[in-house]
């Protein structure tokens, strides 16, 4: 078995989605939303916008929720901007290094979350490849992986995957995973989407 298998889920969990395999959205700008937490002092908003503009983000809108307070008594601000995936990551980094608290850095690309289980000979069928193939499908990205192989890697093992799908593309993502599972003779346990209440 591959020596590196223990690392597999963790690596993927950090989601090198766009860059690792030549990424679907690495070069085309898409809309991103960051939710920031600002101290209620003059100049704070401007200071927070600088790193975005300076790192190649194209500002689209700023929603300054002056009436609201975060649990820490600060003011939440939502900023929409356009950037490539690579630049987006640089922007979030720059914001954080400027001391701006980034509460949420999401992108419009992945609007829906869906959790699935896979089981079968996950290791023998190359889990790493399975995850890459899911990544390669245009609809979803793998956000988190947990693996359980209580009987060793040559027996049946299970994995829980959290996928982030583009808005409205959860079904397409599930179809892709379904086909992949059938191809590799893995069993897929799908969620009941749209039903959870």
């Amino acid at each position: 078995m591959s020596d590196g298998r223990d690392g597999v889920p963790e690596e993927t969990a950090d989601g090198e989605d766009a860059t690792a395999d030549g990424g679907h959205a690495a070069t085309t700008p898409s809309t991103h939303t960051v939710r920031l937490e600002l101290v209620d002092e003059p100049g704070q908003l401007l200071a927070a916008l600088h790193p975005i503009a300076e790192n190649g983000g194209n500002l689209l809108s700023i929603y300054h929720e002056r009436g609201n307070k975060t649990p820490r008594g600060r003011i939440p601000v939502e900023v929409d901007f356009e950037a490539t995936q690579e630049r987006f990551e640089g922007i979030v980094e720059a914001l954080r290094s400027e001391g701006v608290n980034v509460m949420q850095a999401g992108t419009e690309r992945y609007a829906e979350e869906v959790t699935i289980l896979l089981f079968g000979h996950l290791i023998d069928t190359d889990l790493s490849d399975t995850l890459s193939q899911i990544e390669a499908c245009e609809s979803a990205s793998v956000a988190d992986v947990s693996l359980a192989a209580p009987q060793g890697t040559e027996e049946v093992s299970s994995a829980r995957l959290r996928l982030e799908a583009r808005a409205g593309e959860t079904e397409a993502a599930l179809t892709a995973v379904r086909e992949l599972a059938a191809e590799k003779d893995l069993r897929l346990v799908e969620p009941l989407t749209g039903v959870e209440a």
Binding site: F119, A148, P150, V156, S157, S158, R160, R187
Partner: peptide, 8 residues
């Protein structure tokens, strides 16, 4: 369905 899937 393996027990490990239910645990996860």
């Amino acid at each position: 369905v393996p027990g490990s899937a239910l645990r996860l």
